[in-house]
């Protein structure tokens, strides 16, 4: 098991947002966490990325383990640097005052000196050719879809092995959504492990190997994608009948 979340309970101030959830991600998998708005998906990713309050939650119970070791005391920058987990956050949160290239370069801050960065920029540009065309533009000026590509590309440039994606399809036109998801599939085939958070359940379950359904801070269903797609409750609540 690469990542495992065990009976995790978290709070924002006095309000509990996760009530003892458990899930795991094996190396090489795409696992998805689906659920309605406010279910606690972003909260789960923030906790895994070890981001700090008040914007992120405080862990009050349970554990988060990476390759068996608890990471509750790990600093957020070390989650990236040492554990090689990278989060592409909800709302993209690219640095709009930096150029596309500067955003990508910044993500290599913690990389080893001997990393072959040129090849990795090429890999990102190969995956998202639009970024290459726009690499000298201030990233604020990118379209929503391009910003999303940058957010994913930036996460890749950290040299991650586990990619955490928070609603990468948000705000994208359908064509771009499918294009992005094809690229995620390709990344996974090249060896990247992915934990994907989505509101768009059918899109996510079509891509993922396994999934968990989150509802108001509790996991209410889990299984392989096929199992979840055929689960009548899930179908009714998340897949439009």
């Amino acid at each position: 098991m690469m990542l495992s979340v065990e009976n995790l309970e978290v709070k924002y101030g006095n309000i509990q947002a996760l009530h003892g959830i458990s899930f795991h991600v094996n190396a090489g998998e795409i696992v998805t966490l689906i659920g309605a708005n406010g279910a606690g998906k972003t909260t789960s990713l923030y906790a895994i990325a070890r981001l700090t309050p008040p914007e992120a939650p405080r862990v009050i119970g349970g554990d988060i383990r990476f390759q068996g070791r608890s990471i509750l005391t790990t600093r957020p920058s070390d989650v990236v640097k040492q554990l090689k987990m990278a989060l592409s956050p909800e709302g993209r949160r690219i640095f709009g005052n930096l150029t596309v290239m500067e955003n990508l370069k910044l993500a290599t801050f913690a990389r080893d000196k001997d990393a072959d960065l040129e090849r990795e920029y090429e890999r990102v540009f190969d995956l998202f050719p639009r970024l290459k065309e726009r690499r000298h533009q201030r990233s604020e000026s990118l379209s929503g879809g391009e910003q999303q590509m940058l957010a994913v590309g930036r996460a890749l440039m950290t040299g991650c092995r586990l990619l955490l994606l928070d609603e990468p399809s948000m705000g994208l036109a359908p064509v771009l959504k499918y294009e992005l998801f094809r690229k995620l599939k390709r990344l996974n085939e090249e060896g990247m492990t992915i934990l994907l958070v989505e509101q768009n359940a059918s899109l996510a379950l079509n891509l993922a190997h396994r999934g968990y359904v989150l509802d108001t801070g509790t996991i209410v269903a889990e299984g392989t994608s096929a199992q979840l797609i055929n689960n009548p409750e899930v179908k009714k609540a998340y897949l439009g009948g």
């Binding site: 990325a49 981001l51 920058s77 990236v80 990278a86 949160r93 910044l106 993500a107 290599t108 801050f109």
Partner: peptide
């Protein structure tokens, strides 16, 4: 990259650790 990180912090402090930057 340190300068870029300084500019990035002034834009969005929360997202900076996600780049592996303390």
């Amino acid at each position: 990259r340190v300068g870029m990180a300084m500019r990035a912090i002034s834009y969005d402090k929360f997202a900076v650790p996600l780049m592996g930057i303390p």
